[in-house]
Amino acid sequence: MKTLVRLEIVRTLRNRKFMFFSVLYPAMLFMISTLGTDKHKQIEGLHLSYVAYYMVAMASFGAMTAVLMGNAERIAREREKGWVRQLRLTALPGRSYVIAKIASAATVSLPSILIVLVLGATVKDVKLDAWQWIAIAFSTWAGSMVFAALGVAIGYIATADAARPISMIFYFGLAGLGGLWLPITNFPGWLQTLAGYLPGRPYAALGQSIEFGSAPHMKDILVLAFYLLLFAGGAAWMYRKDTRKA
């Protein structure tokens, strides 16, 4: 499994166009979304500044972009080219395949998160304690594994042509309901409740809880853990199912 993980990471890093888009895209969105915004202006109902809110939101959005959009289409194309079939003929278990794909995606998501946070601290003058910066970076990176697993699952059930539009539906839907584009306080109460049980909102809430100086809520962690097990388990099951057919 270690060999496959290393191979997947190297292949991801060699894709310069994908790396460029995935790493710089969230940073550009953060700078644009906070352009001309008073750093002291707060979001009503959250007691959090717009700049601080969108710093975490765009870091989360960028990580989601890298791990979900990249994984799904790449895996679907690998299946069509026969690479996944070759792996199925080996003794590689399904969980190792999923772990390798998640690990390669995590390689891209971490620098995209760090760049947004650095811009928040240096250009936008967001003031947080050292432990908060570290905790936000780690929690946002760790939470992105949920969407990496979703990308693997989509890539394994969809054709190469269908993988991108299916991914985009999940991508924009989960990001929108997660409050990554508009503050969650703008949503009606019933939609806020619904969003709390989908992975997008708990994901963004990890970093925002830390900005308030507290630990992430246990409910958010449990929701994300549930979806991680669901997506990763589903992808591994589909891999094993195809292995029995090979």
Rank of each mutant, 00 (worst) to 15 (best):
R77C: 00
E78Q: 11
R79K: 15
K81A: 13
K81W: 06
G82P: 05
V84W: 15
Q86R: 15
Q86T: 04
Q86I: 07
T90H: 06
A91M: 03
A91G: 06
A91Y: 14
L92K: 05
L92M: 11
P93Y: 03
G94C: 09
R95E: 12
S96G: 11
S96N: 05
Y97Q: 03
Y97R: 02
Y97T: 00
V98Y: 14
V98A: 09
I99P: 03
A100K: 13
K101I: 08
I102L: 15
S104C: 08
A105W: 09
T107P: 00
V108E: 15
V108D: 12
S109Y: 09
P111R: 06
P111F: 01
P111N: 06
S112Y: 05
L114F: 05
V116L: 01
V118Q: 09
V118E: 08
G120F: 02
V123W: 09
K124S: 12
K124M: 08
V126R: 00
V126N: 02
L128W: 11
L128H: 04
D129R: 13
A130G: 10
A130D: 07
W131L: 03
Q132H: 06
Q132F: 05
W133D: 11
A135F: 03
I136Y: 04
I136C: 10
A137L: 14
F138I: 05
T140Q: 06
W141D: 01
A142T: 10
A142G: 02
G143C: 12
M145Y: 05
M145R: 07
A148C: 10
A149H: 14
A149C: 04
G151W: 13
V152H: 02
A153C: 09
A153S: 10
I154S: 04
I154K: 03
I154L: 12
Y156G: 07
Y156Q: 14
Y156D: 08
I157H: 01
A158H: 01
T159V: 04
D161H: 09
D161C: 00
A163G: 09
A163L: 01
I166H: 05
S167N: 08
M168Q: 14
I169T: 11
F170I: 04
F172H: 06
F172A: 04
